[in-house]
Amino acid sequence: MQKEEIVNRLTPVFRKVFADNSLVITEELSALDVENWDSLSHMLLISEVENEFAIKFKLKDLNKMANVGDMIAIISSKL
């Protein structure tokens, strides 16, 4: 799956989890940039992303995700 398609599918997920229809995701985006991206919403995000792409992240995958770019790369590797 192309990176652009992953971003297109991730965008509504992020907007839903963080309740922000104007949120634009970039590869550099991380928890530090989004006000209500906390430990609670992070679990919800992971679950929604796994549901969206029908994948299951390994723990080492999750801990490598410093930003959305890392997330996109890991999703891509699983598809």
Binding site: A31, S39, M43, S47, F57, L59, L62, A66
Partner: peptide
């Protein structure tokens, strides 16, 4: 590695507790 502890903990819980538990958390 500059990772927030809340994210590390969330990753552990997401991985260990399973989908049903996270669906309940929602």
């Amino acid at each position: 590695e500059n990772m927030q502890s809340g994210i590390l903990k969330s990753n552990l819980i997401s991985y260990t507790f399973g989908k049903e538990s996270i669906e309940y958390l929602k």
